[in-house]
Structure formats: C-alpha cells, structure tokens
Simulated assay, not measured.
Amino acid sequence: MPISIDEFDSHDTAEETNAEQVIRFLARNADKAYKAVEIADATGINHNSIHPVLNRLHDRDLVRHREPYWAIGDAETVRNAAMVSTAASFLDEELGEERRSEWLAAAREERDE
C-alpha cells in the first residue's frame, strides 16, 4: 500500500537534531512567523531547549527574530548551510567521523615542529 510523500519524508532513518527539526518546520512554513513555544509544540522539542536552539540558529543567520516571533532566515543562507551539512554527513559516512581530540593533537604536533 503506498504512503503519502509527507509520510515518506517523515520516515527519515537518521534522527534529526533539534536545529534540523526547527529549520525544516520553519522552511515548510516560510510564509509565517511563530512564537518559540509554538515551534517547540510543532516539532516536539522540549520547551526548555527551544530558545537555545533558536538563538544558535539566529547567530548563524538561519532564522530571523522579532520579539516574540521567529521565522526562517534568508533562503540562500539556509540552502548553503544544508549543503555543507549534507556534505559533512556524507564524508563522515565514507571516511569516518572526525574527532576534536585528533584535530587538537595534530595542531599541537604542527605547532611543536
């Protein structure tokens, strides 16, 4: 039995981060602005977690804010961020995830040379 495309899209095997859920919700509703509690309710994100998520997205220009409302940011900025995220996920799958400790160790070695 076939399913709707919306149901298909919601059956993502990889768990989305809170930030990804917020971006997806606001992008699908780009013609509206929402209060933080409305975004939390629509995405299932804990009410105590939504403001930190929104503030981080705002710092990256991925959402816009005019008290008390939030809306999706500039379409090109959001699209570019999504492309970087997709590329990073692909590379993690192909090459293994990067570890911060390895980056710091390599930087120390390079500095000490």
Score class of each variant (00 low, 15 high):
residue 106 A to G: 05
residue 83 M to Q: 15
residue 73 G to I: 02
residue 71 A to C: 07
residue 112 D to Q: 10
residue 73 G to C: 04
residue 54 L to M: 06
residue 66 R to P: 00
residue 14 A to R: 10
residue 56 R to I: 05
residue 77 T to K: 07
residue 73 G to H: 03
residue 65 H to A: 07
residue 43 T to P: 00
residue 102 E to V: 12
residue 47 H to W: 05
residue 104 L to Y: 10
residue 82 A to V: 06
residue 26 L to R: 02
residue 53 V to P: 00
residue 66 R to W: 05
residue 42 A to D: 01
residue 93 E to S: 14
residue 19 A to N: 03
residue 20 E to I: 01
residue 70 W to V: 03
residue 26 L to I: 02
residue 12 D to K: 11
residue 60 R to G: 08
residue 25 F to H: 03
residue 80 N to L: 14
residue 63 V to M: 05
residue 35 K to A: 11
residue 104 L to F: 11
residue 70 W to T: 03
residue 21 Q to C: 06
residue 49 S to C: 04
residue 71 A to Y: 03
residue 61 D to H: 10
residue 23 I to P: 00
residue 61 D to S: 12
residue 71 A to S: 13
residue 19 A to H: 05
residue 48 N to M: 07
residue 52 P to E: 08
residue 82 A to N: 08
residue 79 R to H: 14
residue 17 T to C: 02
residue 9 D to P: 02
residue 27 A to R: 11
residue 41 D to N: 12
residue 41 D to S: 10
residue 76 E to R: 13
residue 97 E to T: 12
residue 80 N to F: 12
residue 93 E to F: 14
residue 95 L to W: 10
residue 111 R to H: 14
residue 4 S to E: 05
residue 58 H to F: 14
residue 80 N to E: 13
residue 76 E to Q: 13
residue 49 S to H: 06
residue 4 S to N: 06
residue 74 D to T: 03
residue 85 S to Q: 12
residue 90 F to Y: 15
residue 5 I to T: 12
residue 54 L to D: 03
residue 68 P to F: 04
residue 75 A to Y: 10
residue 54 L to T: 03
residue 10 S to A: 14
residue 48 N to D: 07
residue 37 V to G: 12
residue 104 L to K: 11
residue 12 D to H: 13
residue 62 L to D: 01
residue 62 L to K: 04
residue 47 H to L: 11
residue 1 M to Y: 09
residue 79 R to Q: 13
residue 1 M to G: 13
residue 109 E to A: 12
residue 57 L to Y: 02
residue 109 E to H: 06
residue 49 S to T: 07
residue 101 S to H: 14
residue 59 D to Q: 15
residue 39 I to T: 01
residue 8 F to Y: 09
residue 38 E to T: 05
residue 1 M to E: 08
residue 38 E to I: 02
residue 79 R to A: 15
residue 42 A to R: 00
residue 15 E to Q: 06
residue 81 A to N: 09
residue 69 Y to N: 07
residue 32 K to R: 15
residue 45 I to S: 00
residue 52 P to S: 08
residue 105 A to L: 10
residue 10 S to G: 07
residue 90 F to Q: 15
residue 75 A to M: 11
residue 101 S to E: 14
residue 105 A to W: 04
residue 11 H to L: 15
residue 112 D to I: 07
residue 86 T to D: 14
residue 46 N to D: 08
residue 46 N to A: 08
residue 36 A to T: 01
residue 85 S to M: 13
residue 52 P to F: 08
residue 16 E to I: 04
residue 41 D to W: 02
residue 106 A to W: 02
residue 49 S to E: 06
residue 34 Y to H: 08
residue 107 A to K: 08
residue 61 D to L: 08
residue 7 E to Y: 07
residue 54 L to G: 04
residue 91 L to P: 02
residue 2 P to K: 15
